[in-house]
Design a protein around this nucleic acid. Structure first.
Lengths: 155, 155
DNA sequence: GCCTAAACCTTTAAGCTTGAAATATACTGA
DNA sequence: TCAGTATATTTCAAGCTTAAAGGTTTAGGC
């Protein structure tokens, strides 16, 4: 009489999960907003650009466009535009992939590496400040729990 | 010798906080992406539109544009465009504010209310599913901890 | 070799987002 | 009154984002 269908409707814990989702969203947007503001005023840059440079910094050999969009979980067309602007800035370089004329490999220039090093140091300090209400143990605990959303994803 | 400056650099817990931030971002984007996809395919709508309708549903008397952008923590120009499209859809109504010809009050139409009711039920079920890896207690714990990021924000 | 499917990437259209400038209205204090 | 300031909103330019469509190139049967 109570739950006729397997999973078309919300379960008994749905309210707690809904509240978590709203809080998650608000917290993320608050931090994002702070970071965006800082990137804009201190480096005249943006969060998407920083994310791309961060991915490239972790992969010194460069990445294909498709690897980049896969890592960042954004659409492929999206990456095209961001890279375009990073190339204009001289932070990123496109080079052909030997043996596959469809693909491009993209990597940081020397200038891009230096710029990213500066930005990454400040970025870490900003995050440290924005999440300063939580101590290291709390941070690790939430990190682990959030990870289960990603790894135990249903359907 | 170790920490010459008060807070220009990252503190000792900064790595844990940085990892938390990256996880927070990834989890949020994953859930957002699922919700966006569902809203698109089931309702031909978007997350920003849902958010606006949700705010209006909670305020039956309507909201001024500035109240709306304040609640949603987005720029005022942003709300203008979203409302514009919701008005086209017949979901939202603009009306003058008596005594202040600068302001508009905005509220759901009957059609908008009915549509939101349908969407909200599905939305709750989607969230329930996307966050299904966590039980109610875990959800409440993280919610409370995340809240401290918002309420104990520094600087 | 040839042909189809797949992979890689860009382009496009539509919409979201911001910060800043522009408009219009309201208020406040000489 | 009237100037100056504050408030409410829109407009604008730039950039981000997606999904879908388009163009190339590669890979796999046959």
């Amino acid at each position: 009489m109570s739950a006729p269908n397997p999973r078309p409707d919300a379960g008994p814990d749905s309210k707690a999960r809904l509240r978590l989702w709203l809080k998650l969203l608000k917290a993320t947007r608050t931090v994002e907003s702070g970071l965006r503001e800082n990137l804009r005023t201190e480096f005249a840059s943006t969060l998407p650009r920083f994310d791309v440079m961060s991915a490239l910094a972790r992969n010194a050999g460069g990445l294909k466009m498709s690897e980049l969009s896969g890592l960042l979980k954004v659409s492929n067309g999206n990456v095209t535009g961001i890279i375009e602007r990073l190339v204009e800035d001289g932070h990123v370089l496109r080079e052909p992939v030997p043996g596959d004329r469809r693909a491009n490999r993209v990597r940081l220039t020397r200038k891009g590496e230096e710029e990213f090093t500066r930005q990454a140091a400040r970025h870490e300090a900003w995050v440290d400040d924005l999440l300063g209400a939580l101590d290291a143990d709390e941070a690790r605990t939430i990190t682990a729990t959030l990870d289960r959303i990603l790894t135990e994803g249903k359907s």
